[in-house]
Design a protein around this nucleic acid. Structure first.
Lengths: 228, 228
DNA sequence: TTGCTCAGAATATGATCAAAAATGGGACTG
DNA sequence: CAGTCCCATTTTTGATCATATTCTGAGCAA
């Protein structure tokens, strides 16, 4: 799931040219999205400076961006931590994801060329093996990638951006769910989505997406820490 | 060792409670939201350091946050500027605002106490005078405040956050429209919204909000620069 | 318990380095 | 001979870091 850091091959272009604050942002973002940082966990600037072997300024900028993303919360005093999801938050996320991601799926169904559907299906097969083998990090990364690539084909950058932000909010909790129940409990609707994409049936895709979102979010709700 | 506590009176200033990067963020955000920065205008760090008489780090962090908000865009090379809205963007914004803000209005209609509806109505009266007198900055600020306070009463922080972000995207363009057509061309639906809030009629509020959003966004669409 | 002190972390500044845009001179072409 | 294009120089701006300053919260003493 990581970007292959091979700056030796392509000297002119590649990940090595990204500024440090961008690299720190991407890494931290991935860590949050895939649950390497637990909900409620404190995040300190100097801790990240040491952990990521970076300077202080890039870390600060990355943290600001992630706070704005809703992926981190600023706790009044100067403390920053990974947010903990509440039951009411899940209701909002369900509504927002249903409307935004269904619309994105609808748009993608009319714009996605056949070859890209093939690629998405191949991705979904890899996802299935990750589920079968209980590979939690792989499952989280591939599931996210499935939805992200679908959204990217909707040709709607603002909506895709909204969807991306929503994922950042429940990413840490999703990981908790997987840790508690395993990957077996995630019967997704990706096959239905793919079928709809092949038929270019927007309604079918939207319906399948709605079910996929609902199933995923109900799992998240079930995995919320009851009170403490 | 410091001088013992005398925090009662501060001799030099009174508003030093917020950290500098927060102050810079609020100011820049307001400038973008209310169109003091034109779409397409370049934003430089050092320019802001001089203009706001601040250090480099606070400006830098504020810019990162605003990029994450979608209020500024990072233009590949290290340049940052105020984004220019395109016709397709308006379509997305219409969809997103309609779904998100209508839901927020729906929720607010069942939760907003009578006294707060009164306050909102008073705000709307001030807004009317701003429209009548052609006070563009006042109109923009009060209109934003009307919607923000309504959203705040929905008890849905995630959705309210999404809505706030959407406003940042079309704020600069809204100012352009006002500069071109004046405030007279904005017949809002606030009266209908208020009526629905009084009756606690969620459907009525949602319908009025949908019309208000549509009217506003169509104005924005009409004011897009048709060049290139 | 209350108040003081102190260690440590966050905030903010300015300097330094690097990169990109702007500028200007020179050569080439019409 | 004039205009234009290209490339090197200059200058502006962004990125990063080391360091000083401020603030928070915990520990200790009365």
């Amino acid at each position: 799931m990581n970007v292959p850091n091979s700056p030796s091959v392509s000297p002119t272009e590649g990940a090595a040219k990204l500024p440090a604050h961008e690299q720190v942002y991407q890494r931290l973002r991935a860590q949050i999205l895939f649950g390497e940082l637990a909900p409620g966990q404190a995040v300190t600037i100097q801790g990240l400076v040491e952990a990521l072997d970076s300077g202080m300024t890039p870390v600060r900028e990355a943290i600001r961006r992630l706070i704005s993303d809703g992926a981190l919360v600023f706790q009044g005093n100067r403390r920053v931590s990974v947010p903990e999801l509440r039951a009411e938050d899940v209701d909002e996320l369900i509504f927002a994801r249903k409307t935004v991601e269904c619309e994105l799926a609808r748009r993608a169904s009319t714009r996605m060329p056949e070859t890209d559907v093939d690629a998405l299906e191949a991705l979904d097969l890899t996802l299935d093996t990750a589920i079968a083998t209980g590979d939690v990090p792989g499952y989280l990364a591939l599931n996210y990638q499935f939805h992200t690539e679908l959204n990217a084909h909707a040709d709607a950058p603002i909506l895709a951006d909204l969807a991306d932000r929503l994922w950042l909010r429940f990413g840490p909790s999703l990981r908790v769910v997987c840790g508690r129940f395993g990957t077996q409990s995630f019967p997704d609707r990706h096959k239905d989505i793919l079928e709809g994409l092949r038929k270019k049936d927007a309604d079918l895709v939207a319906l399948a997406m709605e079910r996929d979102v609902l199933q995923g979010m109900e799992q998240v709700r079930a995995g919320l820490t009851p009170i403490n």
